[in-house]
Amino acid sequence: MTNNTTESTPLVKSGLAEMLKGGVIMDVVNAEQAIIAQDAGAVAVMALERVPADIRSQGGVARMSDPDLIDGIRAAVSIPVMAKARIGHFVEAQILQSLKVDYIDESEVLSPADYINHIDKWKFDIPFVCGATNLGEALRRITEGAAMIRSKGEAGTGDVSEATKHIRTIFGEIRALSSRSDDELFVAAKELQAPYALVKQVAREGKLPVVMFVAGGVATPADAAMMMQMGADGVFVGSGVFKSGNPVARAAAIVKATTFFNDADVVANASRGLGEAMVGINVSDLPAPHRLSERGW
């Protein structure tokens, strides 16, 4: 690079996520789907081999996608492309950085590669997004270098209840933290299992230092608008678009509902005539070992 510049600073990494605020990021498995997502107004796409619903039904070990698939999707669209690495699999992350994706999702949707450690994300120039189910988990991921946080939800189910639980938990814990006095924050840091300086920053600012999206089970325009009304900065839609009856219409409708989340008339109209939603599985019917949101710690 030319003189007087510094690449890949934390600000530049979290800055891209700032630019995605208010938008929808869609899971796509090929170039054709990526173009549908871009035409519908998605702010980015997540390139992967199988959407979470298929990973769930087919079972087996889920890994990083084939670089050819990721390159094909990058070539097809001009919006940013994200891709997933397994939790703790730093070599998959190195490969994704070498492919020059715009963001890496260290994702519980894939099979974890390390049941103790997450990736040291500070070592990378590409920014990371990580899932979280509560504030402590979000702060641990930020400590490891995540530049964006998303709720985990329960991916591939079409059941939004876990995403709701995670976003309510994270925002509720932030509100509770803000009401504590400075001398109580040392214990708060212990309880959250997160560094004191970061806990104090969140307590005083009343928000996470990075952008917070919602993911996992969003299947309808109403789901997306509800997440935005609860305070999400944006929405990831995984299986919800391309496992539905009419992906083109549903993709555009979810984008519209995410933009006009406070206008019930617009969300109502966006909900009309979309055909079948993805079939869906109730999270409570999932036996515990198959719950993706319990991966990561």
Partner: peptide
């Protein structure tokens, strides 16, 4: 020119 300075890997802070 769109993205002329490069993709996310080449994003930077400068004066």
């Amino acid at each position: 020119e769109r993205n002329a300075y490069g993709g996310q890997l080449n994003s930077f802070e400068g004066s």
